[in-house]
Write a protein that binds this DNA or RNA. Structure first.
Lengths: 233, 233
DNA sequence: CGAGCTCTTGACGGAGATCAACTTCTGTGG
DNA sequence: CCACAGAAGTTGATCTCCGTCAAGAGCTCG
């Protein structure tokens, strides 16, 4: 994990996407002086489950999976975090160890901001605290929905939903393939199923002409059909 | 749903359990003047999925299930809320409609606090906002753990976990039965399985002498065994 | 006391986990 | 640029768990 100082938070566009946008010029300068930008290579961890975090990571570039190891030895992906999202907020707030680990899905650039430089703002800048609260409320809503899906929907439905989510979130390349390629195993880990079941389902979708694939890349051909499946028709 | 004014927030013990404890005397007086205490009978809803909430509900007494209807027509319980918890916080913050409905599991007493009387405190009292943030962070952690359990554990494991959770959370009566009785169907809805599967598993636990039952009441006889099951031995 | 819940048990079928073998891709060093 | 090792993808066979339908027994409350 290569470390270096570069750029100023004041000028960073990414800031617009998260709670940091509510900070004053002075607060930003202070944070910018103490932050460290890190390069993280695909597959490397930003932090691991059980670590004590003394700061947060603001994603400047790249995509990361937040996952938790289950007792049965399988990794469950709980969230995909992209540009502008701040990782580790929760454990900084609760002062617990993280319950999740964050691993880069492709090469990333993240800014590490030490906790000490945030607590001041949390304690004095209500706008900032409020923005974090809003963020967390949205995360919670998302999580609740996920719980219901996990509990009630079939693997087929969840895979369809995941593929649609990926397309909506990351868009498609020139050829129409989803601009984010995950391994089949990662998809299985999002859906909470075995790799083989995931592969079989995807092959089925191909047979039905709902999607087509090229290597691990996926293109949606019949979004309506996937949608109908998800909604349970 | 019977409504009446009674008691003052300033004197309410329940307040110690949630973010309201950070409010000043003046803020409490203001809120107390505008709050409405409601009696809710077992089985009645405090609010329903999709409603727009213009305030929060502070639970003074009784227990409520927070659940969401899945597309397949099954109810998924996401959280059990008891004395001191505040319902509807999230949707007040995000200004969305609720994604959950809250139904009383036994007779309840809740205080309705209009949103307008909270926003002032959220905007000006950082301690209050911070307390809500902390609360929400903990809820989120809990939700993440739940996602992993739903995705990775067997129905048997989840039922064992739920029974242990109920005992830890509600304690036992004089005879050793868990002080909170849910219908088998409610347990099934927590676990995300069919009522019959739930019943069969519970009958199994009885055969194994891990629990005993009396009507719908459950007593844990061998907590170690349940624990081992949950952890996957 | 009986209507309507809730609980219980049985039978059956299908979704998905697991194990195993084989192929294709990818990237790293010679 | 090629070779080769280790990932990742694919497919088949088998077995188990759990969802669903059905039918009867036991509670509980008006």
């Amino acid at each position: 994990m290569e470390e270096f100082h570069s750029g100023r938070c004041e000028n960073c566009i990414v800031r617009q996407l998260n709670a940091l946008k509510t900070l004053s010029k002075e607060e930003l300068v202070r944070i910018s002086d103490s932050k460290v930008t890190k390069s993280i290579k695909k597959g490397d961890a930003i932090f691991e489950e059980g670590e004590k975090l003394n700061g947060v990571f603001c994603v400047r570039n790249g995509v990361s999976k937040l996952s938790k190891m289950s007792d049965n030895g399988k990794d469950q992906i709980v969230k995909i975090a992209t540009k502008g999202e701040v990782l580790g907020q929760r454990s900084v707030i609760t002062e617990d160890k993280t319950n999740l680990s964050a691993v880069a899905l492709n090469d990333m650039e993240v800014c590490y901001i030490p906790k000490t430089h945030l607590t001041d703002s949390i304690n004095n800048n209500v706008q900032f605290t409020k923005a974090m609260l809003l963020q967390m409320a949205n995360d919670l809503k998302f999580a609740d929905d996920l719980i219901v899906n996990m509990a009630q929907k079939s693997v087929k439905q969840r895979i369809a939903e995941t593929i649609r989510y990926l397309e909506k979130n990351f868009g498609v390349d020139q050829e129409g393939y989803i601009a984010m390629t995950l391994t089949r195993e990662d998809i299985a880990n999002i859906v909470g199923t075995a790799k083989e079941a995931c592969i079989r389902t995807i092959t089925n979708f191909k047979k039905e002409k709902w999607i087509s694939t090229h290597g691990k890349r996926i293109k949606i051909e019949d979004d309506k059909a996937l949608y109908r499946l998800v909604e349970g028709f």
